[in-house]
């Protein structure tokens, strides 16, 4: 299944944000859920289990100057194998203009047994843009060994590379759950905060397997591994 969803958020001129475009197609449905704040919140509503092998899902986001957009999802997405072993793919591209703000806070991605999933996100931030970006990856459903999944995130700030991360899990990669990578943890994730107005917070230890790190640039990254999704969210709640 191929699907494209598109969100364009603009400043409404009264201190708030309006959605100039909000378009999804199955299985990527979008719903505007106004909460009375200056931020426009959109929920992704999964209309089918997935992504399934063979799916090619794309989400394109634009946040204009001075606009504020928050994207959430109502439930975890579960990457599942297709019939013929073709990989599934989710591609998110986001562009945020100066003084714009994007908060990307979806629920977890669960890599189910046998999946072959690639999630790729590319974010371009203009100088002065703000970003909160969460990625959570769960290795298999309950008591299940995961398939192969790659979660790649690339963020540029003001034309320069800020973050390049590609996390691969699954039986196709030797050592993936060993002591140098996940140490047997079933959940891992990160929360990136880009805020040019604030000085990046210094390094901090948040738990036995969770740390906050200043990047080179106006950003900090919280990175964690955890025994399950619940404990992980404790480190990455935003």
């Amino acid at each position: 299944m191929r699907a494209l969803a598109r969100i364009v958020a603009e400043a409404d001129g009264r201190g708030g944000t309006r959605l100039a475009r909000l378009r999804g197609e199955p299985p990527l449905q979008l719903r505007h859920t106004p909460d009375g704040s200056a931020t426009a919140t959109v929920h992704l509503i999964g209309s089918a289990a997935g992504p399934l092998g063979g799916d090619d899902l794309r989400i394109e986001i634009e946040v204009g100057e001075g606009a504020s957009l928050c994207v959430r999802s109502v439930a975890a997405s579960i990457a599942l194998p297709g019939r013929d072993g073709t990989p599934s793919r989710t591609t998110v591209t986001a562009v945020v203009a100066a003084d714009g703000e994007l908060r990307w806070l979806p629920e977890q991605l669960v890599a189910a047994a046998g999946c072959r999933h690639q999630a790729t996100s590319t974010v371009e931030l203009a100088g002065g843009a703000r970003l909160l970006w969460r990625e959570e990856l769960i290795c298999g459903r309950h008591d299940e060994r995961p398939g192969d999944a790659v979660v790649s995130t690339s963020v540029d700030y003001d034309g320069a590379p800020l973050l390049r991360q590609s996390l691969t899990i699954g039986p196709g990669t030797p050592g993936w759950d060993g002591p140098a990578v996940l140490g047997g943890a079933r959940a891992t994730g990160s929360l990136l905060l880009v805020d040019p107005a604030a000085a990046p917070a210094p390094s901090a230890v948040l738990g036995a397997t969770a740390v906050r790190m200043p990047l080179t640039g106006p950003a900090t990254l919280v990175s964690a591994t955890a025994p399950d999704a619940h404990v992980l969210r404790g480190y990455l709640d935003a």
């Binding site: 590379p161 390049r164 590609s166 996390l167 397997t209 790190m213 591994t225």
Partner: peptide, 21 residues
């Protein structure tokens, strides 16, 4: 350079930060 590998290992980062303390 942008297209070169970017593999991340969470525990490599986390344990390096712990070690530094």
């Amino acid at each position: 350079p942008q297209e070169l590998p970017a593999h991340a290992a969470p525990l490599a980062d986390i344990s390096a930060e712990l070690h530094a303390t």
